[in-house]
Design a binder for these strands. Structure first.
Lengths: 375, 375
DNA sequence: GCGAGTTATGCAATCGTTTGCAAAGACGAT
DNA sequence: ATCGTCTTTGCAAACGATTGCATAACTCGC
């Protein structure tokens, strides 16, 4: 068994010194050696099936060609496409992406960061940033190039790739206003995250721009971006404003929570209350009802982040650019005009929904499923 | 700025030789040095904030404490929970998981494997195995410990963690039979994958066990595990057997494809045709209708795989164990008894579905969404 | 045809650990 | 007291590359 060929073996085979082999194999130093010798070495390397040992090289050069990627939770469907985007450009550039989940816990983020640092990663992609994040200081102390993706920080010059959150939310409220809604509420995301804060601000601004007074723009913030927190926030929102005809949620999972709370109250979406989400997570078109939501270019987010990082690694002096991607609204089945007072056609349907509402709520299985009709 | 303390600095601080420091810091060799000295060294290490450099250590020991994880596609919602399970136990054991996507392309799998090998990973977990997979030979040639997860190979002694695919499918067909179905078809997965083959075989066996003759058990295999392929297979299946009242799909994405094809034909699920999936992917309960499916313990799959791998790394002589996990059926809204001949109540509804079928199919928006009613 | 300048290659140190081997010291048995 | 055995520590050679410096070879102008 021929073990694995090293630079030494190649050197012997080509009749040159190992250092020459190294120079040939490194694009940056290849011009230092004669074309003839270079060819001989390259041939020998190929013949022996030589592959460089990145750990040995890394020891000498202090570069690992590995990038640490910190994300909140891989199981949240927004992130896989982002990660794939990152991975794709990094791999093409000869880097390896190493991803770790933090579950939104700063302590886990910190631990993962230290592991990355120990492994001497060449840079970081952070999808976990809080608006004011202690981790960033540590990253800077470590002297590691980093870029933020999706979420950004309040102040501090770190390159970032984000969505136009305010613009996206404006799309959503304008859509609802165009449908005839005025009583529109907002289930906001965690306010310690830039996305939560920016979307909330965007909602407020868009409402104002539509001529709706601030008191007509109720907000309930969720503790985290998940279904349960969304349901809880929707509950608070509807308790305070029972006559809302539409909710814009800061995120698709929160929107799903709204679905649940509406079902619990015997309200139908979109007939009684319209809901719009944010992110257009995979399978959002499969929900019941299919979710109207603000689409963000998931994969592109990752791609751009990786590009920015590569750029930062090459020229470490470069100024911190921020790339802002434009979202777009995708209208599906969870939004409709506000319910009319019962009139000639459609009255029967409206009545049917009406009747079921004040009694005990239907068994809380999956939201609004046609299931109960057939069992 | 204090750079980073090395073993050398610790040695100087503690007044001992670097090799002694190394011995103290390695649990396996700590007993070689006096307790007093060990304490002094440990103190110095802590004081200087020493952290070992795994790349330097790896160079010497030929162990990277990194594990390569090969999965088909992170964006397929079955995998994130599995990956998280793997990552969790690996991290606890001091390893780093590095994951790569193959998109089911052997060439990409091969390329990723070579990158892993170059990085000197200590082991592999493979979620990409074909029934007869050339990659395995390469893995063995590399001498890398490996374990298979979810999918397994035809022949060859590699530890694996799989589901009881046949048993799971039996759960599904028995459920349908109990509901009164007899005309049950199977949308099978790719037959080059163990899951595709095992579930198909399981379907055939369960049908036979229910006393349904082989000719009454039609199968159409999908080219890949995705929605489009599922729709295509469902189409072939229903073209051949238009009177099917139920379909068991080899996978949730294929089941979603069935939803689409049924909608295209103006058939309603579950009223006209029941559908059951496999995997219970995240959000399967949110689909329209909520999907009855065979639940597999995603995370546990990953956890067990990682454990098996660790075991294989410790004692490389150990025999290749196979862990088989039990799935369970979760009944939701996509299954119901077969449609009755029109009788007193429910007749109107049945008629409505019936009527829409032969004409041109409804616009293919999201499957079965109530949307069109309101726009 | 000789010295200066240029280029291509070799030499050896280095990156931060681990580990086989040797040496020194401690201890007990004779 | 001497010798052998054990324990504890130091020494130095790896591991597989990269790279500053030295040196040999070659070019070119005069």
């Amino acid at each position: 068994m021929p073990k694995h060929a090293g630079i030494h073996d190649v050197a012997r085979a080509a009749g040159v010194h190992p250092s020459t082999v190294s120079r040939v194999l490194n694009a940056r130093t290849r011009h230092l050696v004669t074309a003839a010798v270079a060819a001989r070495v390259a041939a020998a390397a190929r013949r022996l099936g030589y592959t460089p040992d990145p750990v040995a090289a890394g020891l000498r050069t202090r570069r690992s060609r590995a990038i640490g990627v910190l994300i909140p939770d891989l199981a949240n469907p927004v992130f896989p496409p982002i990660v794939r985007g990152i991975e794709s450009v990094l791999t093409d550039a000869g880097y390896t992406a190493v991803v770790a989940n933090t579950d939104n816990e700063p302590a886990r983020a910190r631990a993962a960061l230290e592991r990355f640092a120990a492994r001497r990663v060449d840079g970081l992609v952070l999808a976990t940033a809080l608006r004011r994040d202690a981790l960033i200081a540590r990253v800077k102390a470590l002297g590691l190039p980093a870029v933020l993706v999706n979420r950004t920080i309040e102040a501090g010059a770190i390159p970032a790739v984000v969505n136009d959150d305010a613009g996206g939310i404006a799309l959503a409220v304008n859509h609802l206003v165009a449908l005839g809604h005025a009583a529109i509420g907002h289930v906001a995301g965690p306010q310690r995250l830039s996305t939560g804060a920016a979307r909330r601000a965007g909602y407020l601004a868009a409402m104002k721009a539509s001529g709706i007074p601030a008191r007509g723009a109720p907000v309930a913030a969720a503790r985290s971006y998940d279904i349960a927190a969304g349901a809880q926030a929707a509950r608070a929102l509807l308790d305070a404003r029972p006559h809302l005809t539409a909710i814009v949620a800061a995120n698709d999972l929160l929107a799903l929570g709204c679905y649940d709370e509406l079902a619990r109250r015997g309200l139908q979406c979109p007939r009684d209350v319209s809901v719009v989400g944010f992110n257009d997570m995979p399978f959002a078109d499969r929900f019941s009802p299919p979710l109207t939501t603000v689409h963000i270019p998931h994969r592109l987010l990752g791609v751009e982040a990786a590009r920015l990082l590569l750029e930062a690694i090459e020229r470490s002096g470069a100024p911190a650019r921020e790339v802002r991607l434009a979202p777009r609204l995708v209208v599906r089945g969870s939004t409709a005009g506000p319910r009319q007072k019962p009139v000639a056609p459609g009255a029967r349907l409206a009545q049917r929904g009406r009747r079921s509402s004040p009694g005990q709520p239907p068994p809380r299985t999956a939201a609004g499923a046609p299931r109960q009709r057939y069992r």
